[in-house]
Amino acid sequence: MTRDPVLSALAGGDWRSGEALAADLGVTRAAVWKSIERLRRDGYEIEAEAGRGYRLVRATERLLPAEIARHFRPRRLAGAIVHRDEVDSTNRLAIELAREGAPEGTAVVAERQTAGRGRLGRTWESPARLNLYLSVILRPELSPVEVPRLTLAAAVAVADAIAATTGLRPEIKWPNDVLLGGRKACGILTELEAEAERVRFVVVGIGVNLNALPDDFPPELRAKATSLAMEIGRPVDRAAFAGALLGALDEVYGEMLRGGFAAVRERYEAWHGLPGRVVSVEGGPRLEGVVRGIDDEGALLVETADGVRRVLSGEVTLRSTYPAS
């Protein structure tokens, strides 16, 4: 994704005359004017004054691919970034693009989702221009059995990106919730389409609450949800965060493809908040016990009265906020 050369030339925030811009960029003044108009439509605030030229007052608040690309140097995930002001669900659109053959690394971002998807038909609260709604298409050489581990790797990427951009210490709750101060800041929904032994594609959908404030959440979520801005007390640069997240995802994904989940496990465990805590598991095999960690396949290990059990699916609820002995 290349940035508009006029935008790059104005990035310093100084006045530049149309004539100088045209000469520097080797284009006509009419072309400069066209670029300025397009940038304004994209939400960049650009001042114009006779005799002085143009000045960039404020970058766009929209999560434009060119803005994200400034903060992301792709390695494996070098696909296009598709931006929508509004979409029903970034996962839904990404699945559609994947079915049409979009390459690995293609990412979908939206300012707003009208039907943001959670697990099993739940919705993901997606107000406009505050947060990050991102879905990434992957085409890994993995068997379908191995794919769920990708969703754990994605949680590692989110935790890394939060730590790198804010200095906060997030906590992962198995398998892939990312919490700040015990409240949910991120949800991940991974969907895959596969034949018996071969993955066609995987879409990793990531919603991160960045700049939402308490009033932006519906009342029933206020006690359970938080945002990065609420935790650090100032707004977050959404494009910078999106770039950091894509970079972290690129890295951890490459690591997993090279070394399997075992290669990612240590990084996951560094953020994992459940070990030592008492949980109950429902919606799969029903059990209760103390979390002992995860294994090389990403399964949660829970020590029950009948010994250590491996949990691969189900809903984990904390039974106590105190570490069990």
């Binding site: 697990r119 099993l120 379908p144 990708l150 969907e191 895959l192 034949e195």
Partner: peptide, 13 residues
Amino acid sequence: VEAMKTMNEVVAE
């Protein structure tokens, strides 16, 4: 089929 909150669609071939 769901495992670790990953939704695998079972599709007719």
